[in-house]
């Protein structure tokens, strides 16, 4: 069995996002890029399947800031090979374009399952799993919290609202969007990441095409942080002063006694 896990870099949301001078995108110059957290869930589930029934796990990414680190980390965690697709274009690739190029690349590969992260924080274009499934013409399921491999099929568990889950048996090849792996993503020790780096097992491959720009028929008018109007009243002072004020607020609503 071969499992392909596409991974991508996203801006670290803990940091401030600045806009570029045209206001048409975030300013990518000073942004710190990190691995999309749901891709780590996807890789973990792939590795769990590999451990249970044996599989070749391949990670694939487009050439993005600090993506080598993410790919080597995946190898250190137990992925068998890593592919970097180069030349697709600079800057932000929309999910639609990512999906189109990945689908072209995948059509020249053999695979039983593609496991993606359920979403990425920079999406406006929808989710990769469904788009890929639609383009490849294979069944897909997203918001998945467990994959049980069978023969010629997998049984996936999807989470609906409120914790209700449904299970479906799906023929392979298929695409799965991973919400949460059956266990928390494993830790890759720095020493193993270094080892992977010096072994240099990263294969660079020309992407099957270039980005052609945003979808027609959708024009960005404005990109902006949410209005400050409805924002919280900020409590000033150090921790003791803030604690004092919070207790006062709760007391004023009759929720605690002073």
């Amino acid at each position: 069995m071969r499992i392909v896990v596409p991974v991508k870099q996203v801006p670290d949301l803990v940091e401030e996002l600045e806009l570029n001078s045209e206001g048409s995108d975030i300013d990518r110059e000073f942004v710190k890029f990190v691995a999309n957290e749901w891709d780590e869930q996807a890789l973990e589930e792939a590795l769990l399947i590999k451990e249970a029934v044996g599989a070749q796990v391949s990670v694939v990414a487009f050439d993005e800031p600090d993506v080598d680190q993410t790919l080597y980390t995946a190898l250190a965690r137990g992925a068998d090979d890593a592919v970097k697709l180069t030349g697709a274009g600079d800057g932000w690739l929309s999910t639609a374009e990512r999906a189109r190029l990945l689908a072209q690349w995948l059509s020249g590969q053999s695979y039983d399952m593609v496991i993606t992260g359920v979403q990425a924080s920079d999406d406006l274009d929808g989710q990769l799993a469904g788009t890929l499934g639609g383009l490849l013409g294979v069944p897909h399921a997203s918001v998945v919290v467990g994959v049980e491999p069978g023969s010629g099929s997998v049984t996936v568990t999807q989470e609906l609202a409120g914790g209700t889950v449904v299970t479906t048996e799906i023929a392979t090849p298929c695409v799965v969007g991973m919400q949460t792996a059956r266990q928390a993503p494993r830790y890759a020790p720095i020493s193993r990441i270094r080892q992977a780096m010096s072994a240099g097992g990263l294969e660079s491959v020309e992407a099957p095409g270039e980005a052609t720009g945003p979808a027609e028929g959708v024009e960005l008018l404005r990109l902006y942080p949410p209005e400050k109007a409805g924002r919280a009243e900020m409590i000033s002072g150090d921790a003791p002063a803030v604690a004092e004020r919070i207790v006062e607020i709760l007391a004023s609503k009759g929720l605690v006694k002073l």
Binding site: G133, G134, L135
Partner: peptide, 10 residues
């Protein structure tokens, strides 16, 4: 999340 993007693609 599951159907929106696949429907759009198809």
């Amino acid at each position: 999340m599951d159907l929106g993007s696949s429907l759009a693609a198809r």
